[in-house]
Simulated scan of single mutants.
Amino acid sequence: MRWRTPIGGIAILIGLTGYAAAAATLGGALPEHALLQAVYYLLAGLLWIPPAVWIMGWARRDDRSG
């Protein structure tokens, strides 16, 4: 049974939604400094990728088991 794939997809959707809300909230608290905000949003926009890749790799192991 392929149970990891839907769990991984749901985990990514829930996690990314929470992450985006937290990043936007924290970003809204930043001082009005263009360079600081640009660096913050660049990093915040990229930091979700490694956990999502890990979850996709975890979910993909389900396909190799059967």
Rank of each mutant, 00 (worst) to 15 (best):
36 L>H: 03
49 I>A: 11
46 L>E: 01
18 G>Y: 09
63 D>T: 11
44 A>Y: 01
14 I>W: 13
25 T>V: 07
27 G>K: 05
47 L>D: 00
4 R>L: 14
47 L>H: 00
10 I>A: 15
54 W>D: 02
3 W>Y: 14
1 M>D: 08
2 R>I: 09
45 G>V: 04
57 G>E: 10
42 L>H: 06
38 A>S: 13
44 A>Q: 01
62 D>Y: 12
27 G>T: 05
56 M>A: 15
29 A>M: 14
5 T>G: 08
2 R>K: 08
51 P>W: 04
27 G>A: 07
39 V>T: 12
17 T>V: 08
36 L>D: 00
14 I>G: 08
12 I>Q: 09
46 L>C: 07
14 I>Y: 11
39 V>I: 15
1 M>K: 08
28 G>S: 06
36 L>Y: 06
30 L>V: 07
63 D>V: 12
40 Y>P: 06
9 G>K: 10
61 R>M: 10
56 M>R: 13
58 W>T: 07
9 G>Y: 11
63 D>G: 08
51 P>C: 04
7 I>P: 01
34 A>D: 12
27 G>R: 04
4 R>I: 07
47 L>W: 03
53 V>G: 02
16 L>W: 10
41 Y>A: 04
53 V>S: 02
4 R>P: 11
31 P>W: 02
46 L>K: 01
9 G>H: 09
18 G>N: 08
44 A>C: 03
3 W>G: 09
40 Y>M: 05
66 G>L: 12
16 L>Q: 05
7 I>F: 12
13 L>E: 06
66 G>F: 12
34 A>M: 07
36 L>V: 15
12 I>K: 09
22 A>R: 10
20 A>C: 04
55 I>F: 02
23 A>D: 05
55 I>C: 02
39 V>H: 01
8 G>T: 10
36 L>A: 14
23 A>Y: 05
12 I>G: 06
30 L>F: 08
3 W>F: 14
31 P>Q: 04
31 P>G: 04
1 M>P: 07
61 R>T: 13
65 S>F: 12
30 L>G: 09
25 T>K: 12
48 W>T: 00
49 I>M: 10
53 V>M: 09
15 G>K: 06
9 G>A: 15
25 T>C: 01
14 I>R: 09
43 L>M: 11
42 L>D: 06
29 A>G: 05
56 M>D: 03
37 Q>R: 15
58 W>G: 03
24 A>V: 13
43 L>N: 07
30 L>E: 06
16 L>I: 05
